[in-house]
Design a protein around this nucleic acid. Structure first.
Lengths: 420, 420
DNA sequence: CCCAGAGTGTTGACCTGGTGAAGAAAGGTG
DNA sequence: CACCTTTCTTCACCAGGTCAACACTCTGGG
């Protein structure tokens, strides 16, 4: 039983997952919206003040939350005592896998990075990558007890998956990575799509904190999309949501690798941008950094290429906003430093293509490195621990001792359909 | 107190809304997925068999559900006795408002039409339209007790709104239609966007029955979109989701009214199609029916125009499927009979623009009249009654007698944010 | 200064609704 | 027939939420 209980047995602090559903809802609300008094929590969670008193007493006794200093804003009645989560007592590890290397961070429950590390990969074979992750997780997690591990990589995963599916860069499909890491690291482990993990990080404690509807669009090797609607990540019934790269943004332009003319990826990917500038300069060794330097120096080919990229990005953002009524869009990815140089064209194209009755979204730019992606995976692990019912937390639940809160009859075959 | 209780007091049958949340979940599950044994319900709703026995006993006693004949498929153990909802005992009224007239239907809880009616409108003033609706509702609802009224019209409404907002065809904004009709008809009333109401109808008891992820795209005066993701209707934080009309589908083509070149509405709306054919024939009095006749007769201009429309529709469907991973798309609206003549071009354009890793969706065509839209509004009313907690059912809840299940402290200020 | 008002937080009795365990019921199969 | 599987029921129990009442702590007014 090398699970979280084993790791945290020496401390009196209960793991986030060891609380009831209302208590977990309280923790979520405090994490996402910041310190808050019991009365406010009761209103938001539609519980009675009495229930809040009881739930928060248990959480205070286990030091999961603590009382904070009262806010100065007086309102006429007895001032409430804000509660806040003891985030540093609940740490997670997140990892991001690319074909070149693995990156990991240890974070607190809010997803703030406390320690990081990385490993180069010389092959993409499953055992080698798994070994690198285990090694890296042990490195960043050895100094502190950790409650869960989240792993992000490209592919068609469900929201909280246990397998790595359909990864083109690594050539993996349906690899039981969750189970492998769970037993090797002794940590509850969840696998997730990398763009959606980044989006979760942005949502939990980044520029989208507190928002319920927004999109994250990433540019780089490909174009990625993470979509949050009414506070829920859009995953798609087969985990394939977010394939936005081949949306048409122009009637002309180069062909993309799939033979589409004028699609977003023929203007926006790193390969498309460097190739266009390379052709203009007769220099096949062009890099994105070089394109930026050229554009900053006034080179017309580089500027035109980036302008077209900005135009394309504005177009796909406009289509998203039109269809989903998004008040906020966040742009990220390693291609962003280049595309951001065409912010004017981006905003112009966005304004042009926005529906007359749609509202202009707030645009934000998130320039980051791979740690931000690993951080997102840690946030996914935290959300998972706070959301999943205990009897579902681990794929090998049958082998674990029963806690008394689990069920005795058969598991449901499929999730409940909520119609609303 | 002219609410549903007043209307149904003479019968022993409890209204759908008068059950607890698990009982309502059972009713929803039985409505959406058809007759089902208790054991299967328990698995789907993640309840114990014991809980199901108790919940269904109450529902059977009030004749809300009944036992059906056992299905022949034997499985080795004791065969379960399927349960089904007494749909004909729970009737709703749905209405659709256009600038020309109002349409209403009385349906059972599954949304099956039992009676219909319509009224022409000579003006779009709020009082006249409201009078027409009240008159029509009284006509279709006089022979049977009815539990709720749903009204669909264009605009930026929330999922279950009480006001009509931002309606361009009627020139209305923020009209308290729900409250007006609620007191005039004596029925709990909910206001909803018309395309989303149609989508709800398609979901509840139409071609998308039992599905959790699909889109409905309508063509006609404009282009409409209803999107259901994980069983939930996408509404947008300001009720404006679904504005898909100005997505770019081509680099060339006519200008739309908003000045976009090559956007979907410049190929797909009734006005765009008829104008293109009218220009080609020098006949300004062109109608969509005439375009269909011409195309069937081999007229090149009509055929080309419809082919372009089919191409445009395929393109916007492809973008939707790419981004949302939808396994199923339903095409509807009064423009569909024309566009369906270009089914080949539609499917070809869809296949071309689909991402290489996306799955081809199932396409369905729903040719219908305005009754189908009114039927959708009735389904919205039924969903509302089954979903909304009792203390929120009616906007003037404060004036109603307390039922004992309601809360004594302040209402929450905002809905709970669910992060997942 | 004291009191009314307003909002927050706590307590204890109570109750709703779900659970566990055990077993009856109803069909197959050898 | 015995035996298995799955469904459904019963009943004691309990987790967790509610109600009602009240204590607490601030503001503002006379």
């Amino acid at each position: 039983m090398a699970t979280v209980q084993g790791r945290t047995a020496h401390t009196k602090i209960a793991a986030l997952a060891d609380h009831g559903s209302s208590a977990r809802a309280v923790i979520r609300e405090l994490l996402v919206h910041g310190p808050m008094a019991r009365a406010e929590l009761a209103r938001r969670l539609q519980l009675s003040p009495a229930a809040l008193t009881r739930v928060t007493r248990d959480l205070l006794e286990t030091a999961t939350i603590r009382e904070a200093a009262a806010a100065p804003g007086a309102t006429g009645g007895r001032p409430g005592t804000p509660l806040e989560v003891n985030v540093e007592q609940h740490q997670m590890v997140g990892a991001k896998i690319t074909a070149e290397g693995v990156y990991a961070v240890r974070t607190d429950a809010l997803g703030r990075v406390l320690q990081g590390g990385q490993r180069q990969l010389s092959s993409t074979d499953v055992p080698e990558v798994a070994d690198a992750i285990v090694d890296l997780v042990n490195e960043v997690a050895e100094s502190q007890p950790v409650e869960a591990l989240g792993v992000g990589l490209a592919g068609a995963m469900s929201r909280f998956d246990d397998r790595a599916r359909h990864n083109l860069f690594l050539g993996w499909d349906d690899v039981p990575l969750g189970t492998m890491l769970e037993s090797a690291c002794g940590l509850p482990t969840v696998i997730s799509n990398d763009v959606r993990a980044l989006t979760a990080g942005v949502h939990w404690s980044g520029p989208a904190r507190g928002r319920d509807d927004f999109a994250v669009v990433t540019t780089g090797v490909g174009i990625g999309l993470g979509l949050v609607i009414e506070g829920r990540m859009v995953v798609g019934p087969r985990g394939r949501a977010g394939m936005i790269g081949h949306q048409r943004v122009s009637g002309t332009g180069p062909l993309c690798v799939d033979g589409h003319r004028g699609c977003a990826s023929s203007f926006l990917t790193t390969a498309a941008i460097t190739r266009a500038v390379a052709v203009a300069h007769g220099d096949p060794s062009m890099t994105l950094a070089r394109v930026c330097t050229l554009a900053d120096g006034g080179d017309p080919a580089a500027r035109r290429t980036l302008a077209e990229a900005g135009h394309a990005l504005g177009a796909i953002v406009a289509d998203l906003v039109n269809v989903m009524d998004l008040p906020s869009v966040i742009l990220a990815g390693d291609g962003l430093p280049a595309v951001i140089r065409a912010q004017t064209e981006l905003e112009q194209s966005l304004a042009e293509r926005l529906d007359r009755h749609a509202a202009m979204p707030e645009l934000r730019f998130l320039v980051s490195d791979f740690d931000e992606w690993a951080r997102g995976a840690a946030v996914v692990a935290c959300q998972w621990v706070l959301l999943e019912p205990p009897w579902r937390r681990s794929p090998d639940a049958a082998a674990r001792p029963r806690t008394g809160r689990e069920r005795s009859w058969q598991r449901p075959r499929s999730p409940v359909a909520v119609h609303s």
